[in-house]
């Protein structure tokens, strides 16, 4: 069986400084992986490199998506293939309505996959159904992308996109940052509703708290640009009790 996402011995540099020193991770369909680690361990770098953000130099290793070389693809190609990054800090785009943005993005992905574009009524129907299931009010769709949204609304907007684009692998970068406990629960419920045997998730988080709501199959601890320990969901609880200090020394 081909893995959905394989990161092999990945080394990444940003402006002459190596951030990832040989990271390996294999994600199969249906699995939820949590990546934990202290600030500066390279968690967000990993998510950015998978999504194709400019400014990172891969010096060694590879990332395969269904056996294809992901690093050879532009960010939009990766999105069309089914790679989705939920941003830690979703950007605000004044002047572009959420509505128009979602329609344009969905049709761009469909076009890249050789599918016919959705007409406005077809799109309307789809987005309404998805928004309803996530408790997102219609007027949020009429506003500029993320403009004036609360932290919780921004994260819900990310999950709305995830539900709409139906990606194969979702990378959730610090989804819990800036959320209070109620907003966190709403966001996590949205993510859980999208779990399926075909879809994989990589949940990047600093705190164990999120993993009470999104229960992972595997937990990896990152420190100083490497995975230093992997285990089951209990590893997260262990970390909560003992902290990251032990791994910082080990790495």
């Amino acid at each position: 069986m081909t893995a959905l996402l394989e990161v092999k011995d990945l080394k990444v540099r940003v402006e002459e400084r190596e951030i990832l020193h040989g990271l390996t991770l294999t994600v199969n369909p249906g699995e939820v992986h949590a990546i934990m680690g202290p600030n500066g361990s390279g968690k967000s770098t990993l998510s950015h490199v998978i999504a194709g953000k400019p400014g990172y130099e891969v010096t060694d290793g590879q990332i395969l998506f269904r056996g294809e070389d992901l690093l050879e693809m532009d960010p939009d190609e990766r999105a069309a293939k089914g790679v989705f990054l939920a941003f830690q800090y979703p950007v605000e785009i004044p002047g572009v309505t959420t509505w128009n943005f979602l329609h344009t993005a969905l049709n761009a992905q469909r076009k890249a996959r050789g599918e016919s574009p959705l007409t406005s009524p077809e799109f309307l129907k789809k987005v309404r159904a998805v928004a309803k299931s996530l408790n997102i009010p219609q007027d949020m769709l009429k506003r500029g992308v993320n403009v004036g949204f609360s932290g919780g609304e921004k994260k819900r907007n990310e999950i709305l996109q995830m539900a709409l684009f139906e990606p194969a692998v979702c990378i959730l970068d610090e989804m819990d940052s800036g959320l209070d406990i109620d907003a966190l629960r709403v966001a996590a419920d949205g993510v859980n509703a999208l779990r399926s045997p075909e879809r994989a998730m990589v949940v990047i988080t600093h705190y164990q708290r999120l993993l009470n709501y999104i229960v992972p199959d595997f937990v990896h601890v990152m420190s100083k640009g490497r995975v230093v320990k992997s285990g089951g969901k209990d590893l997260a609880l262990e970390l909560e009790a003992s902290g990251y200090a032990q791994f910082e020394d080990a790495a």
Partner: peptide
């Protein structure tokens, strides 16, 4: 950062630019 956000959602470079220019 806006361009990357749009490209990560599937818009080509030209499409992403066009949307931001329109805005």
């Amino acid at each position: 950062s806006l361009l990357f956000y749009l490209r990560a959602r599937g818009l080509s470079e030209k499409e992403a630019q066009a949307l931001l220019i329109q805005a």
